[in-house]
């Protein structure tokens, strides 16, 4: 009852309600809808606490049983508690929390993001090969967009057309057309999945198998 039937009834009721309120602007429905949104935020806040507890548990167990690489877990736990304590005792606008945020978290995360630049270079080098006609088209498009989107390439002209215009054309038309095609399929797939859950055909999210 509590593992299957009740969640399915809940999914159906809430799903149908969300569809109805989308089309009916009655204040009572909107009030209920706002209540659902409020509860969603409350649940999310609570689950963040659950997530943090799991994180602590996960790393604490690694340290306790001296699992391979447990030193990283010690660093993770120490960093977590250091930030929390710094925020509690000195606030978040000034003091150690702000210092750690600016001097550790900001450069650390920015470094992670900057790795993309390196990975994109190797990925482009590896995949842009003129193996056949379609791969050659991909290669040419890639090169045109890469050059046409930076100042040095914007002024280059091929056959009377500037590289910037060519790059814009590729992004505006073939790129947008392909994305629209994928978006339409994705939209229908999303609607189908949502309807299957509301109707109760799809239950694997509840752990149900064949």
């Amino acid at each position: 009852m509590f593992r299957r039937t009740l969640p399915m009834i809940l999914a159906f009721t809430v799903g149908v309600f969300m569809i109805v309120q989308f089309f009916v602007p009655h204040p009572q429905l909107q009030m209920l809808y706002n209540m659902v949104l409020d509860w969603k935020q409350v649940v999310f806040g609570c689950v963040l606490i659950v997530g943090t507890m799991t994180l602590i548990r996960h790393h604490a167990l690694r340290v306790r049983f001296r699992k391979q690489g447990y030193g990283y877990s010690i660093i993770a736990l120490a960093s977590l508690f250091a930030m929390v304590l710094a925020a509690i005792f000195w606030g978040i606008e000034t003091g150690p929390y702000s210092w750690l945020f600016t001097n550790v978290q900001v450069p650390g995360q920015a470094t992670m993001f900057s790795l993309l630049g390196f990975f994109i270079a190797t990925a482009a080098y590896r995949s842009f090969r003129a193996r056949n006609v379609t791969a050659t088209l991909l290669l040419l498009s890639g090169v045109i967009v890469m050059l046409g989107r930076v100042p040095a390439g914007e002024n280059m002209v091929i056959g009377g057309v500037s590289l910037a215009d060519l790059a814009t054309w590729i992004l505006d038309y073939p790129n947008t057309a392909a994305k629209r095609g994928i978006l339409i399929g994705v939209g229908l797939g999303m609607t189908s999945t949502a309807l299957k859950i509301i109707i109760g055909i799809e239950q694997s999210y509840l752990g149900k198998g064949e």
């Binding site: 090169v143 930076v150 040095a152």
Partner: peptide, 24 residues
């Protein structure tokens, strides 16, 4: 930042061209 972006794009294009020459 446009200078850095331009030169790095040119470098990647150069590597792609070299890669294709090697492949050919």
């Amino acid at each position: 930042g446009m200078d850095a972006q331009t030169i790095s794009h040119l470098f990647i294009v150069m590597m792609v061209v070299l890669g294709n020459i090697g492949y050919a």
